[in-house]
């Protein structure tokens, strides 16, 4: 019963995230999906992933979305979809049906060996995964620099200086700095 309630809440939040016209509402509904999924993880006994999902999925990612929306502007979404909605619904239904037929025909298989603890699996048996995570986090830091580099230009735009070139190009920043020095 609890699983059904949490699942229904997650699906409702996901639908609202797609239906909402404002980006900030969609980001908040996404945080709701993350929270419900984290609660399901906790009830399943996956405590470590529940904590990570709650802190990263509902915390860090939501903050990133709010920051990005505040930079890009929360204008109401008025683009018409490329796909007609009934056709998109049919296209979404096809993979769901195929996966569902395979999923519900599966039965649980109990493995004969005793499973190691989470720490042993993460740090010893799946060590290369941790290395990949370190590389990915480094890429994420570079991506954050990509986001933060735009704030520098926007503050310069607010100061009233004209920007002739595209605002994010290095040439335009040099041009602004040369004017400021004069």
């Amino acid at each position: 019963m609890l699983f059904a309630l949490l699942s229904a809440s997650a699906i409702f939040s996901a639908i609202q995230a797609i239906r909402s016209k404002r980006l900030i509402e969609a980001a908040i509904y996404l945080a709701g999906v993350s929270t419900m999924v984290a609660l399901i993880f906790y009830l399943l006994g996956a405590h470590e992933v529940a904590v990570i999902e709650l802190s990263v999925g509902a915390g860090l990612v939501t903050v990133l979305f709010v920051f990005a929306i505040s930079l890009a502007g929360d204008e109401p979404i008025s683009f018409l979809p490329n796909f007609p909605k009934p056709l998109a619904f049919i296209f979404a239904l096809i993979p769901v049906t195929i996966i569902g037929l395979q999923l519900f025909s599966l039965t649980g298989v109990s493995m004969p060996f005793i499973e190691s603890s989470f720490n042993e699996i993460l740090w010893q048996e799946r060590g290369p995964d941790v290395l990949v995570q370190v590389v990915l986090i480094f890429c994420g830091v570079l991506g954050m620099l990509g986001i933060l580099s735009t704030t520098d230009v926007s503050t310069k735009k607010k100061s009233g200086l004209p920007i002739a070139n595209p605002p994010n190009s290095a040439k335009s920043i040099d041009h602004i700095e040369a004017k400021e020095n004069q």
């Binding site: 996901a14 797609i18 980006l23 996404l30 979404i77 979809p81 993979p95 996966i99 999923l103």
Partner: peptide, 28 residues
């Protein structure tokens, strides 16, 4: 629940054109 979230996300990817909204749908 997994199937429903997957279906909602596929539908959202097909009908969304806003770049930030696409990232939100990808998260789902």
């Amino acid at each position: 629940c997994v199937l429903a979230l997957f279906g909602v996300a596929i539908y959202g990817l097909l009908v969304t054109r806003n770049l930030i909204k696409i990232m939100i749908v990808l998260q789902i």
